[in-house]
């Protein structure tokens, strides 16, 4: 039977990367957010943000759509159900592992 700390080895690396974790955490608290909002909240550069969103989209954790709000073109991002599940699973693994270490 696996030790809880060993569960860290199976962490989802798409979510585990700090920038993507930030994005997933922000998107998990909203229905959707646009590129500019995410850029301001995370402090990432446009290029970096674009790359990380692309990776999350490729993993089907984030859905990206082009929309208009009034006259403004927006790149709207939302966490997909599988993205929410992945974040939730990541959180529970981390909480278990960190909880065990705190108790040790």
């Amino acid at each position: 039977m696996k030790n809880k700390i060993q569960g860290l080895a199976d962490l989802d690396r798409v979510i585990h990367e700090p920038a993507r974790l930030m994005l997933a955490m922000i998107l998990s608290t909203v229905e959707s957010a646009d590129f500019l909002f995410l850029q301001r909240e995370t402090g990432l550069t446009k290029g970096n943000l674009s790359v990380h969103l692309g990776k999350l989209e490729k993993a089907e954790y984030v859905k990206i759509e082009k929309k208009f709000k009034g006259k403004y073109p927006l790149t709207i991002c939302r966490l997909t159900p599988s993205g929410r599940r992945a974040l939730s699973s990541y959180r529970s693994r981390m909480d278990k592992a960190l909880g065990k270490r705190r108790g040790a």
């Binding site: 608290t29 909203v30 229905e31 959707s32 646009d34 500019l36 709000k69 009034g70 927006l74 709207i76």
Partner: peptide, 15 residues
């Protein structure tokens, strides 16, 4: 929509 979205971005809150 006119003044805030272009400056600070758009966010739709979760129901």
């Amino acid at each position: 929509t006119r003044h805030v979205v272009p400056r600070a971005g758009f966010v739709e809150y979760r129901v």
